[in-house]
Amino acid sequence: MEVTFRHVTADDFALIGRWLAEPHVERWWAHEWSPEAIERDFGPTLRGEEPAEDLIASAYGRPIGLCQRSFWYAYPDEVEEFAPYLDVPRDAMTIDYLLGEPADVGQGLGTALIRDLATDTFAAHPGCGVLLVPVNAGNPASWRALEKAGFRFVAHARAEPDNPIDPPDHRVYRFDRP
């Protein structure tokens, strides 16, 4: 099974909002899902005002998830937050991901999505030499999927969590350009 990616369009906003409202997504993304919040948070990337990419992941002929990627140095505050714990090379990018449908969780799709997103990121961004991905330490499903996709654990870090109910403990994973 291959996971493919395309850039988010405004037509995807309702789907993204529905996914963000799913309990298994809301727990880790802690994101508002009203139409106004989706436009506010995903519109700038769509219009090229944000130095990141939002992507819809598809498999089996249907959308399965949302992915994001960006160069670390496009967000200096995040580099500064993680720099005490690991070297963040100038050519490093990060990814984020979610599976939207509850029925897709636990089926191996997360690992496939991460593996294929890494391959797609290196192909789309020749200047990217490494992926560094921080994951909340309390989310073992996510960091295990990274490990199964070939990422290796490189650091413990303390950083602002996506969900304010979580402690700041993160595990950071690395995948070098093949």
Rank of each mutant, 00 (worst) to 15 (best):
V25P: 02
P126C: 02
M93K: 12
Y73T: 04
T121Y: 00
H31L: 13
W33T: 14
G150N: 12
A74L: 11
L55M: 04
F82M: 08
G150A: 12
P102Y: 05
D176R: 07
G43W: 10
C128E: 02
A145F: 08
G108Y: 06
L15C: 05
I16A: 03
W19H: 01
D87T: 14
R69H: 01
C128W: 03
V88D: 04
T45H: 07
W29C: 13
A145T: 13
S34G: 14
V8A: 01
R27C: 09
S142I: 01
H156M: 13
F42P: 03
H125D: 12
W29L: 12
R27K: 08
E2V: 15
F82Y: 15
F175R: 14
A57K: 00
A157H: 04
D162R: 15
D91A: 13
W143V: 13
D11K: 06
G110T: 06
R177S: 07
E50I: 08
L132T: 04
I16W: 06
V3N: 05
A10G: 12
L109T: 01
V3L: 04
G106R: 02
G17Q: 05
V88M: 03
R47H: 14
P63W: 00
H156F: 15
A14E: 14
G129R: 04
A149M: 06
I56Q: 01
D12I: 03
A57W: 02
L131P: 01
V133M: 05
W143R: 11
M1H: 11
A57D: 00
F71M: 12
L146R: 10
A57L: 02
R152A: 15
G17L: 12
V25Q: 01
F151N: 09
L113W: 05
A52N: 09
L20Q: 10
R18E: 14
N136K: 09
E160C: 08
H31S: 15
R90C: 13
E49Q: 15
A155G: 02
I64Q: 00
R90D: 14
F13R: 04
G106N: 02
P35E: 10
S58E: 11
Y75I: 08
N136R: 12
P89C: 08
G43V: 11
E81F: 08
E160W: 04
D12L: 07
H125N: 14
A118M: 08
G106F: 06
G138D: 05
R174L: 11
V25R: 00
G129E: 07
I64P: 01
D162M: 15
N139F: 10
P134M: 07
P126D: 03
A137P: 07
W28C: 10
P76F: 04
D96H: 11
D104P: 01
H156A: 15
E50W: 14
W33V: 09
T119I: 12
E36C: 09
I64D: 00
G65C: 07
P102W: 05
P63V: 04
H7K: 13
H7Y: 04
A141Q: 03
D96R: 13
D176S: 02
V154Q: 00
A118S: 09
W143L: 03
Y73N: 03
H170Y: 10
D12Y: 00
L98S: 14
V79G: 10
E2R: 14
I38N: 03
I64W: 00
K148Y: 11
M93N: 06
